[in-house]
Amino acid sequence: MADQRIIDVKLDEHTIIWRNADIEQERRIAIFDLLEGNEFEPAREYPGGYAGPYKLTLRVEEGRLALDIAAENDTLLETIIIGLTRFRRPIREYFAICDSYFQAIRQATPQQIETIDMARRAIHNDAAELLKDRLEGKVTVDFDTARRLFTLICVLHIKG
């Protein structure tokens, strides 16, 4: 029976330099939410008919995103590589709006915070759709899974 979901996700620790507590909290929440509910269905058929659940490791390698997909027993099934060029702008915009949001929650009015949060969600949603498109033909994910994966992709791009 197929179990098309992610049960564990790791970020390549060599890629990441934690920037601040806010970003670390975003990472923890994204991983927790991702593991609580996700849809992740690789297009490829694996040896022995393996159909999940999956362990996922995300890393940036030579300007590209590498997704290592492993079986429950840690056997590497495949590595999916996608270019990150089309993500540069959404990542930059997401960082900028997140910085504004984190500053706003400390000193802005509720209405200002809500306005910034709406803009942050819009950027995040657009990036999630882009990720779904870039994964098409390789792995099928639902919208919420794509949003959480985009958050983790952003964490991989933090350089201090």
Score class of each variant (00 low, 15 high):
18 W>Y: 14
19 R>V: 03
19 R>K: 15
20 N>S: 12
21 A>S: 10
22 D>H: 12
22 D>E: 14
22 D>V: 07
22 D>L: 08
23 I>P: 00
23 I>H: 08
23 I>M: 09
24 E>W: 14
24 E>N: 15
25 Q>I: 10
25 Q>T: 12
26 E>Q: 12
26 E>N: 08
26 E>G: 03
26 E>P: 02
27 R>H: 11
27 R>C: 07
28 R>C: 02
28 R>Q: 14
28 R>P: 01
30 A>P: 08
30 A>C: 07
30 A>K: 00
30 A>F: 11
31 I>C: 09
31 I>L: 11
33 D>K: 15
34 L>E: 11
35 L>W: 00
36 E>K: 14
36 E>L: 03
36 E>H: 13
36 E>V: 00
37 G>R: 14
37 G>A: 03
38 N>S: 11
38 N>W: 01
38 N>I: 00
39 E>Y: 15
39 E>Q: 09
39 E>M: 08
39 E>L: 13
40 F>H: 09
41 E>C: 11
42 P>V: 05
44 R>T: 11
47 P>L: 14
49 G>N: 12
49 G>T: 10
50 Y>R: 00
50 Y>W: 14
50 Y>D: 12
50 Y>E: 15
52 G>E: 13
52 G>S: 12
52 G>M: 10
52 G>N: 12
54 Y>R: 03
54 Y>L: 04
54 Y>V: 01
55 K>A: 02
55 K>E: 11
57 T>D: 08
58 L>F: 01
59 R>H: 08
59 R>Y: 05
60 V>C: 04
61 E>A: 09
61 E>C: 05
61 E>N: 12
61 E>D: 13
64 R>W: 09
65 L>N: 05
66 A>N: 11
66 A>D: 10
67 L>M: 15
68 D>S: 14
69 I>F: 05
69 I>A: 02
70 A>Y: 04
71 A>P: 07
